[in-house]
Nucleic acid binder design. Sequence first.
RNA 1: GUGGGCGUAGCUCAAUUGGCAGAGCACUGGACUGUGGCUCCAGUGGUUGUGGGUUCAAUCCCCAUCGCCCACCCCA
Length: 418
Amino acid sequence: MKSRFTALKGVADVLPPETGLWRKILNTAGLVMSAYGYEEIIPPVIEQTELFLRSIGDSSDIVSKEMYTFTDKGGRSVSLRPEGTASIVRAYVEHNLPARPAPQKFFYSGPMFRYERPQKGRQRQFYQLGAECFGIADPAVDAEMITMVMAILGRLGLKGLSLELNSIGCKQCRPAFRERLREFFTPRLSELCPDCQRRYEQNPLRILDCKVERCGEIRKDAPLISETLCQDCRDHFASLVGFLEALGTPHVFNPHMVRGLDYYTRTVFEVKGDAGLGAQNAVAAGGRYDLLVSEFGGPETPAIGFAAGMERLAGLLRQEAAAPGPALFIASLGAEAATEALKLATRLRDGGTRVELGWGGFSLKSQLRRADKINAGSVVIIGEDELKSGKFKWKNLKDGSSGEAGREEILKQFSRAE
RNA sequence: GUGGGCGUAGCUCAAUUGGCAGAGCACUGGACUGUGGCUCCAGUGGUUGUGGGUUCAAUCCCCAUCGCCCACCCCA
């Protein structure tokens, strides 16, 4: 710990080879999402604070105590985004995108900020990858979005995931359910854990996924949202389940699942990983939010979205193979040979071949040792003999084959064959 | 914000009752004048997270502080 500066608490550098994994995740997700008709949108990471107050709502700690909020030099209260959806919806309304034909589909990725106590799978600056679809209320869109999320995860080779599903109703039926829930817990309020007593006031739905054992027993006979949904919500959910079954997408109905953000309506879903993620085991989650666009001043527009945590995805994709090395390593002996090596390397690099050089007057042996250490595919040796004869010695470090070849031959042989 | 655990070399970890800070791996070089991997040898690398205190003496005990980890809360 002699470094003069260290990264802030809860933020982290992503180093190679981890960065390769991140790129793979983003590329794969981008590929799948464009097949589903999504286009990238790049919103700013900073917004006026009120945007998040109005979207996420005050029943969540995100807004009340986790935002990076400050006053800028113009006296405005601004915040680093704690999640992506609010910005996308703002952009959608601000640029009058509802005027374009529905559905409008966007994906995004980038850092989010929440001032939380770090733990496994949770940091203050973390990356999310997400998508939003505007303009269609049909449950087929819910099924499509969920299928797309599962397709991304599947394409990445992730196994042991479970998709959980619920409906939390709309503005007609959810308030009624909240009240029924309160009535149910009122007589046993004193038996609930302190956190749940607070939830009772703030957001009684949250009591349903409390981890305290005693609270679990108490809520055994609590009313279920699925029994309280209005007919429209009930139909919507049934239809979604039908689509998923037709698509063969495995899913689990979890009547106790509650999402944290206030703006969700009807469909909510969560994809959980199996092992290795600790307590923060949701790799992706999302839901429908049919009211948010109009709350932001746009026309009444149904919408649905999801977000996935990059760090959690990367954590699940264990780094398997050794770091790939250069296709060719050029060892040289003497100043003249070094010049020749540099010229050769530059021509190959111009053609896209990855080449490393054995710089610096080291013995041939140490240069070759280094070529081996960095996992080079082949090595070419340039010394005085080779300069005289014009024939370079080469050796394949993988299979041990070797030979001699002229410059043009070498160029041809290593010009980005693979 | 709350609770618990942990800070010794780049990494993983030792260090007896409080008594000269070590090993393996990694890195660099050599043994082997221009042919890697295996082996052997050597070398580089540390104010023991930081600041105080107790003591003849602190990696070890005490206090504070910072950082990391895990869990709660919350959530991707």
